Amino acid sequence: MLCVFFALLTAGSNACAAVLQRKAAAQVPPERSMHVSLIADLIRRRVWLAGIGMVVVAAVAQAAALATGPIALVQPIFIIELPLTLVLAALAYHNRSALRRLPWAAIGTVTIALGAGLAIAQPSGAVDSAQDTSWMIALIVTAAFEAVLIGAATSVRGELRAALLGLAAACGYALTAALMKNAMSDLDQGAVEFFTSWHIYAVAVAGVGSLFLLQNALQAGSLVASQPMLTVGDALISISYGVTLFSEQLRVGWWLVPQIVALACIIVGCVQIAKSPLAAEATGLVTETASPVLLWCE
């Protein structure tokens, strides 16, 4: 399917952007950190500009994926972005020891389980846009869910706080994807409809809010706590938006059993990847240097 191609292109482009921008940032003197001169230095580096180019490709590809396919299919595919970033980072630095230290079993588990789970679920159907009344209900429920998560997170510390904020960020990114899908439907009706509709502006608000929550989740605790909640939570909540807002359908009945098994394998694989020492560097790279991509609902 065309949307699968664009979703894979998005994940690959995000991973490439992260690796290229981190490689450029690593060449900048440490004393320029948090200074305007950092950007001035990076702009002069071709590898950083190449990374920005991949950010643009990722943004366009994700919009195309959401415009041509169901959210329940597109968003879960982005789960492979983290393992792909690890592999590309090791290759980019020509580090054979890093390649050997990659959690290959976990990477394979996540990739195979993701493919099998989507093949079994077979997300299908979908309308291009949701009614404003449906959006109103969805936004109220989302706001209440986010309030509960953030409220609970402020009363705890450590890993639990990171997990709760990671889930809150996942919900924000899923909402951003749903809004983007509707915005692409507005674009099909013309530029006037696109810029006069509220959806595209809500994309920006939801994206910025999600990025803020993600940064707090990463600060609160380890990747083992936040990353699985972010990765799997985004996929599951995106599916719920697809079903409730855009009339998408999944296989149910006894098909739910292998889907649950695949989901469990993905969660276990994500946890093992997050435990990898290489994941800390790769994830910091994605969240710090490729933040423009996140604003387009990573």
Rank of each mutant, 00 (worst) to 15 (best):
T283V: 15
G158A: 11
L42A: 08
L99E: 12
A7K: 07
C3R: 00
L213F: 13
A65M: 09
E31S: 14
T133E: 13
N182G: 09
Q131E: 14
G253Y: 14
L139T: 12
L213K: 08
L218P: 02
R22L: 08
A113T: 09
L149Q: 00
M180Y: 03
H35S: 14
L2D: 12
Q62P: 00
L175F: 09
G108C: 06
A147D: 05
L66D: 11
W198S: 14
L160C: 01
V110S: 06
C265I: 07
N14T: 14
A183W: 09
V28I: 15
A40Y: 11
A183N: 05
C171Q: 02
S291N: 04
N95P: 05
A18I: 06
F194N: 04
G242C: 02
G221P: 04
L230Y: 10
A217W: 08
P103I: 03
I237K: 02
A40V: 01
L160A: 13
A144M: 13
A98H: 10
A113Q: 09
N182L: 09
L88P: 01
L223V: 11
G284D: 12
Y93S: 15
G190F: 08
A98F: 03
L214C: 06
A143M: 07
T68E: 15
N216D: 11
G207H: 06
R157G: 06
I137A: 10
I52F: 11
Y241D: 00
I43K: 14
M34C: 02
N14D: 10
V232K: 02
L165M: 07
Q227D: 03
S210P: 08
P228I: 10
L91Y: 05
V156E: 00
A98K: 07
L187H: 07
F194K: 05
Q62E: 07
I107G: 10
A147H: 04
I79N: 13
R22I: 00
L84I: 01
A170T: 01
A235F: 06
A113D: 08
E193G: 12
L164Y: 10
P292F: 09
P30F: 07
N95F: 08
G253L: 06
L66A: 10
I43C: 04
A217I: 04
A152H: 01
Y173A: 08
I39Y: 10
F6G: 00
V293C: 12
C270R: 00
V257P: 07
L164R: 08
F6K: 02
C171W: 07
Q259W: 01
V74K: 05
I52H: 01
A113Y: 03
I107P: 09
T231C: 05
N216Y: 10
S222Q: 12
N95Y: 02
V205R: 01
F6Y: 14
I80W: 05
C171A: 14
L187M: 14
C171S: 14
D234T: 14
V127L: 11
C3S: 15
A264Y: 00
V74S: 08
L84W: 04
L2C: 01
C270H: 02
Q227H: 07
A225H: 09
S238D: 09
I239P: 02
S291L: 13
V208S: 08
G269T: 07
L49Y: 06
I43V: 15
Q219I: 03
A67Y: 08
S134M: 11
T85K: 10
V232D: 07
E281P: 00
L167V: 08
G242F: 03
Y173C: 05
Q75W: 03
A59P: 02
L20G: 06
E288P: 00
L211M: 12
V60M: 05
V224Q: 13
M180I: 12
N14I: 15
L165T: 03
